[in-house]
Design a protein around this nucleic acid. Structure first.
Length: 446
RNA sequence: UCCCCGAUAGCUCAGCUGGUAGAGCAGUCGGCUGUUAACCGACUUGUCGCAGGUUCGAGUCCUGCUCGGGGAGCCA
């Protein structure tokens, strides 16, 4: 008999059939002549209830000693459950104790603080919440690949080691002794965008999906030193096409998670963020709002709100401004476009007004900026001027300029912080709890 | 990096205007033929984050440090 997964048994298991499962105990409830074991194998939110009768040869010696966290193999007959809370349960004919726990097993049945769970990151995926986060991450990852693959985008594996200097995207981690090895200073990538542009100008539609790194000393609930980024890049595309893709993309991924992770999402809806499912359904159904930066500033100036940082044309929008716009003003995701050139990166396409660039930020309630993108500057002369204005060494970007000299074409793309998306979808408050092994300043234990 | 808050049992926390440490859960033992964060009884558990200071006396007040959290900046 081969073991089945709890998820399949709970959903498709026929009463009367023989079943064997392996997993870990969420709880063990022992009565005099009967033990109830809640066995979970990570395949779904719920565990399978195992009923252990006293006839088991190891009932007194081993089964009654089982506690939360033990690993077991259970074989027996699946029966309709007379108790409430589950359709079927497994009446054990055989229980093998595969792994016991010390009496210092830190996970208890009651809820733990997420701060504590971070100190036991090797055990926290066995909890309801973190277990559900991992499954949502998995489904969202697949939904992202599906979305792009179905549209003919090529998955481009951008390098992690790069000689490129910071593109205004924050501090970079530099490799020790890299100069001796590579002949020049080498760092961990902050973005695969420049490489994605290369891909777009040969394969038309590409995307990256991989880890990126920031050495910035950021200590917030929305920043990680290592995080996963999704960066589509499209040739023959302008900012409008870019914004349209971003909207379609977010709706597709969120829709897939709602559909395929219904149990997990119900848990988040009940325990983590009340109303999150309704909010997400609303987002999938309604068009995103669009607004230029200039319009956004006007809205903020006329809002009558008492902002900590005053708004005027030319300054970057602060968190409080972004949140007002998306949470109070339009009450749904908002795409802000055409920012002042001075506050945006050198590679963004300059508008005819000579003041703004074709940049966009997608703002969502509670998180703020979840996507940042732009149409790229493909005119060599304009790009060179912008690089000089940003104090960049054009020599170091020779290939980036060369790309435009040979078959250059308008192109656009965006970057999505994958963990921010997971945060948004699950309602989890801290980004450190939506990545399996968070790296933040001062912390790389696991 | 800046501002604010916090650190007491394995976990979640209480501990008043300074007077010598407590609850629930977990764990161990016992009880209970159907439990659902099971329930009932008993037992065990502490350098009160670290280092100084004030005081007859500090978990409590003060200073510094460490770690954690919230917010800000930077950004995704």
């Amino acid at each position: 008999m081969t073991s089945e997964r709890v998820h399949d048994v709970l959903r498709n298991g026929e009463p009367g059939s023989s079943v064997e499962i392996r997993g870990w105990l969420r709880t063990a409830r022992h009565a005099k002549g009967l033990s109830f074991l809640d066995v979970s194998d990570g395949s779904c939110m719920n565990g399978l209830q195992v009923v252990a009768p006293p006839e088991l040869p190891n009932f007194e010696r081993e089964v009654r000693a089982l506690t939360t966290g033990c690993a077991v193999r259970v074989g027996g007959e699946l029966v309709e459950s007379p108790g409430k809370g589950q359709r079927v349960e497994l009446r054990a004919a055989e229980i093998e104790v595969i792994g016991t726990t010390g009496d210092d097993y830190p996970l208890q049945k009651k809820r733990h603080s997420f701060e504590f769970l971070r100190t036991i990151a090797h055990l926290r995926p066995r909890t309801n919440t973190i277990g559900a986060v991992w499954r949502v991450r998995n489904v969202a990852s697949r939904a992202i690949h599906d979305f792009f693959q179905q549209r003919g985008f090529l998955w481009l594996h951008a390098p992690i080691l790069t000689a490129a200097d910071a593109e205004g995207a924050g501090e970079m981690f530099e490799l020790a002794d890299s100069e001796a090895f590579f002949g020049r200073p080498t760092r961990l990538t902050v973005s695969g965008q420049l490489e994605a542009e290369i891909g777009a100008l040969s394969h038309t539609h590409v995307y990256t999906f991989g880890p990126t790194f920031r050495a910035e000393n950021s200590n917030t609930s929305r920043h990680l030193s290592e995080f996963w980024m999704v960066e589509p890049e499209m040739a023959f595309c302008d900012l409008d096409g870019d914004a349209a893709l971003a909207e379609e993309f977010l709706k597709a991924v969120i829709g897939t998670v709602l559909e395929e992770c219904a149990d997990d999402m119900a848990f988040f809806n009940e325990r983590i963020e009340k109303g999150i499912v309704e909010t997400l359904e609303h987002i999938v159904e309604t068009p995103f709002e669009r607004m230029s930066y200039t319009e956004a500033v006007a809205v903020l100036e006329q809002s009558g709100q008492d902002f900590e940082y005053p708004v005027r044309w030319g300054v970057d929008l602060q968190s409080e401004h972004e949140r007002y716009l998306t949470e109070e003003h339009v009450k749904r995701p908002l795409v802000v476009t055409d920012y002042p050139a001075e506050i945006k990166a050198f590679y963004m396409y300059a508008n005819a007004d000579d003041k703004t660039v074709r940049a966009m930020d997608v703002l969502v309630p509670r998180i703020g900026e979840i996507i940042g993108g732009s149409q790229r500057e493909h005119r060599v002369d304009v790009l060179e001027r912008r690089m000089v204005a940003h104090g960049l060494d054009a020599e170091a970007y020779w290939w980036y300029l060369d790309l435009r000299r040979h078959g250059g074409a308008p192109h656009a793309g965006f970057g999505l912080g994958f963990e921010r998306l997971i945060q948004f979808v699950t309602g989890m408050a801290n980004i450190r709890d939506v990545i399996p092994f968070p790296r933040v300043p001062g912390s790389v234990e696991f």
